[in-house]
Nucleic acid binder design. Structure first.
Length: 879
RNA sequence: GGGCGCAUAGCUCAGCUGGUUUAGAGCACCGCCCUUACAAGGCGGGGGUCACUGGUUCGAAUCCAGUUGCGCCUACCA
């Protein structure tokens, strides 16, 4: 009975069916009580607002590879899934929704608004989870968590209070990054610096009690309204006359002291700086040093406040224009220079950030950073690729305190309580009833915590911390963290700090940092550019396996990836190749029971593919263990397509089509053995198609329950591979002649081989049918007595002379050209080798084995040259 | 300003600790083939002074230094 199998692999249906099967059978579930060694990966939690993009697809494919590989290696694997509440992003989404109804969040009030966000989350949020499933990811979905879940919130409170108790959290009035659109403070990491073309405006400030002026240079002229001094470098000779004097702030006519501070760079601008302590971090420092007034001129929304005099109420950029115009009218704007500088933007809404003076909560980070630096330095945590270690060190060593309070409503409320009577602040796990100091009424701090303040606890909060759970015991520390390199500081570094502080152990042992997926022109994919590729569309078009395969095959280790929609054909073609190899083998099996692989009955091709297979098993496993996943896939591809399909399956066709059942069975048993193993190796990369063909072929329940093949190094046989490569080279040479001389497969040809190597002749004699079948030859004559034909195409392979009589078919001119080219090449190679051997220091210094090799080469090349020359002569004589 | 990375075929990239004939793959290109797994395929072919300069070495795409170009990160770039 022949099974009807489609000529083309049709993934539709297959993928959904298997995913449901895996889920229904609980294959993704992790058992904390298992006796097996555990292997754990924490998913980088996608934002609840996120929709699947190609970066998620890559990130999670890599994780899935590790998880599926380790599971088949016998580990108890846990891939912990979950989502991030994404404070700003989520609040923005719901606020936009409200705006459509003509409302803002204040119309609802805090409680109602937060309710509304939860509603939104239930209805529209978390789409990405379902989307991830279409790509086949083996997360333990039963464990899915959300950073705002009760358990995780408990962890956040515990950490805040406990850090506070340890003196690592403080509240202070400081210059922070303020997003006027989001209306909240941001941490340094949440500010994206973009290089902008700006201007350096030179402004004249009149010197008090003198007809003179000083000229200051600024990129933000509107901040002059908040100036409380001008500063010069104390060493600057040009301005020594100003020491002790004052200047008059134009427009507002305020008197400003001239101060001296070594922070001022005499080389930059005019060497005189306006000092605005409330709106610039450097000026803030100077203000502290010189006891200057801090004049805040901005409202929270970026408009100017009452301190801005006649400019109050204007937007900051409008104010800039107006101020410049007014200064110009007074003749105080003396020069405008082009000036490129980097400007901070909000990472969520791209609004230009204002350095803003406000009261915020901070984490004193230096004490935490110290241990985290050491964890990486000592190798307790390894970064892959290693190049990130330097970047990590540099960042950690220069880290500044972490501003963790956000003026948002969506997030974890800060567990601090302010006394309405005496102003006392109490930090506590449970809300205290009254002020411990004066028994006054308490009000909880209105701010919420930075979203990253919950995600930095991810490796243990997801496992039930601060409770002592079985999960924590089994799965912490986790093993590998896979994430984009852009998130190293935001998240990875902070998890290391929190893990060491609260678990007293690293949160993971290895960090795999991959690059960013870009479009074909190397641009970041973004909504505004419209150059994104929708992974779901690609899954629909090409299959999930194809998407996974393509992404990975294009992903150089840790580097950015360029990709276009058409590239997904690579993956589709590969799965189709698997399908057809399966189809071929399976058509030969029919219903019969397959005999076990019998190593004593193998012929050359079998031994060869088994040797190559065992080599492939070793190299692919090595690659995965060493975090070289795309190299692993490349090796799997090369073996499966380039060796198994291109050579082995071709070599056994003669046996498979024969009537001799024993011959059929021996070939088939090897073919199936190697195919099954290859599917297992490939399963982590392309889980669906491998599951489909593996189970069909083996009758087993699931490939996921099978064990990853282990390389039997004793089957790697160099001698066999050498023999086989002789067959391959000869075959290629014959095929080349046929192709060049346009001899179609339908025309059978004869091949004459001549050699004085007894060894090579024996190999060919034993395996002549391989060459005959691969090259569609009638016969091969080995060192025969027949006359050399007048007209023949020729070649030389490993000192074996190939002669193909092609009377009537040969194009003499073409063949001459071909031989001349070959001659030229070999002569070049010969020359290079000779040059080496003539060089006395080479012979003296190079290892003997290398010298010996070169001598052998020289011998071979010169012999080949002679033979080609002879063949050329024959051609000339014949024409 | 500092740091890191990249530069190999028309394009995307392999090439790990120097020695695989004269550097590989995929895509693209050319030729032949609907050969009894696969035209989403097979077989063959063309195409590269490995960015530049210098150094180390018997020997460099590979190691070192510098130069140029590009990218990313980072900074108290008024």
């Amino acid at each position: 009975m022949k099974k009807e199998i489609s000529k083309i692999y049709n993934p539709k249906g297959v993928e959904k069916r298997w995913y449901d099967f895996w889920m229904d059978n609980g294959f993704f579930r992790a058992d904390p009580n298992s006796s097996k060694e555990s292997f754990t990966i924490m998913i980088p939690p996608p934002n609840v607002t996120a929709e699947l993009h190609i970066g998620h697809a890559l990130n999670n494919t890599i994780q899935d590879i590790f998880i599926r590989y380790k599971k088949m290696k016998g580990y108890e694997t846990l891939w912990m899934p979950g989502m991030d509440h994404a404070g700003i992003a989520t609040q923005n989404v719901v606020e936009r929704q409200l705006a459509k109804e003509g409302l803002d969040r204040h119309d609802l009030g805090r409680e109602k608004f937060v309710e509304r966000v939860w509603e939104w989350k239930k209805e529209k949020g978390g789409k990405i989870i379902e989307q991830l499933k279409t790509l086949g990811f083996a997360c333990d979905w039963d464990r899915e968590v959300f950073t705002m879940d009760e358990q995780l919130s408990k962890a956040v409170t515990e950490v805040f209070v406990s850090l506070h108790e340890r003196g690592h959290i403080y509240r202070a009035k400081y210059i922070i990054n303020w997003c006027p659109r989001c209306g909240t403070a941001l941490s340094d990491e949440e500010v994206e610096h973009k290089e902008l073309q700006g201007h350096l405006w030179h402004l004249k400030y009149p010197v008090d009690g003198s007809p003179e002026f000083v000229t200051v240079a600024t990129t933000r002229p509107e901040t002059m309204l908040g100036d409380s001094a001008v500063a010069v470098n104390p060493e600057d000779e040009r301005y020594k006359n100003l020491h002790g004097k004052s200047v008059i702030l134009p427009l507002l006519n305020r008197k400003l002291k001239v101060i001296q501070d070594s922070l001022v760079d005499p080389e930059f601008g005019t060497g005189v700086v306006k000092v605005t302590p409330a709106h610039d971090p450097n000026d803030f420092e100077m203000g502290e040093r010189h006891g200057l007034e801090k004049i805040n001129i901005l409202n929270e929304d970026g408009t100017l406040n009452e301190n801005a005099g006649q400019y109050a109420g204007l937007d900051r950029f409008e104010a800039r224009e107006r101020i410049l115009k007014d200064l110009e009218a007074e003749g105080l704007l003396v020069k405008i220079e082009d000036h490129d500088h980097s400007v901070g933007h909000c990472y969520r809404c791209s609004t230009i950030i204002e350095p803003y003076l406000s009261e915020q909560w901070f984490v004193k980070i230096a004490p935490l950073a110290e241990k985290a630096i050491d964890a990486v330095k000592s190798g307790k945590i390894k970064l892959h690729p290693k190049k990130w270690i330097k970047t990590y060190d540099h960042w950690m060593e220069n880290i500044r305190d972490w501003c963790i309070s956000r003026q948002l409503w969506w997030g974890h409320r800060i567990p601090a309580y302010h006394c309405e009577e005496c102003g006392e602040i109490m930090v506590a796990r449970e809300e205290p009833e009254k002020c411990a100091h004066c028994s006054g009424a308490l009000k909880q701090d209105p701010d919420v915590l930075d979203t990253w303040f919950s995600s930095w606890l991810w490796p243990f909060s997801t496992l039930g911390w601060p409770d002592k759970t079985a999960e924590l015991k089994s799965f912490y520390p986790t093993n590998t963290l896979v994430t984009g390199n852009e998130i190293l500081f935001f998240w990875v570094a902070r998890m290391i700090m929190s893990g060491l502080e609260f678990m007293e152990a690293v949160p993971f042992t290895d960090v795999y940092l991959h690059g960013i997926v870009r479009d074909e022109q190397g641009r970041k994919m973004s909504k505004s550019l419209g150059n994104g590729i929708d992974p779901l569309k690609m899954v629909n078009l090409y299959s999930a396996d194809a998407v996974r395969y393509t992404l990975l095959s294009l992903a150089p280790e840790g580097q950015d990836i360029r990709i276009g929609e058409k590239d997904f054909e690579i993956g589709r073609n590969f799965t189709n190749k698997i399908w057809n190899a399966y189809r071929f083998i399976s058509s030969k099996i029919d219903d019969k029971d397959l005999p076990e692989l019998n190593y004593s009955e193998l012929e050359l091709a079998d031994e060869w593919i088994i040797s190559r297979y065992n080599y492939a098993v070793a190299s692919i496993s090595d690659d995965i263990e060493n975090f070289k996943v795309s190299s692993a896939l490349d090796n799997a591809y090369k073996f499966f397509w380039g060796e198994y399909c291109d050579w082995y399956l071709e070599l056994i066709k003669e046996r498979l089509y024969s009537d001799d059942e024993a011959r059929v069975n021996s070939a088939l048993s090897v073919a199936v053995h190697v195919f099954k193993g290859t599917m297992q190796l490939l399963h982590p990369f392309v889980p669906f198609v491998t599951e489909e063909v593996y189970t069909e072929l083996s009758g087993e329940k699931s490939i996921m329950l099978s064990s990853m093949p282990i390389s039997d190094e004793s089957r790697i046989n160099r001698a066999v591979e050498d023999k086989m490569s002789l067959i391959q080279e000869l075959s290629t040479a014959v095929r080349t002649i046929r192709s060049q001389m346009s001899v179609p497969p339908s025309v059978k040809a004869t091949l004459i081989l001549r050699s004085n190597s007894k060894e090579n002749l024996e190999i060919i004699e034993e395996n002549r049918s391989y060459i005959e079948n691969l090259c569609k030859l009638d016969s091969i004559e080995l060192n025969g007595k027949s006359e050399r034909p007048k007209l023949a195409a020729t070649d030389v392979v490993k000192n074996i002379e190939l002669i193909m009589p092609l009377e009537g078919l040969i194009d003499i001119e073409l063949e001459t050209e071909r031989l001349n080219k070959a001659l030229h090449n070999v002569e070049g190679a010969l020359k290079a080798v000779e040059n080496k051997l003539v060089n006395k220091s080479f012979v003296k210094n190079a290892p003997p084995a290398v010298v010996e090799k070169e001598k052998q080469k020289k011998h071979d090349f010169s012999e080949k040259v002679t033979k080609i020359k002879t063949n050329l002569k024959w051609l000339t004589n014949a024409s």
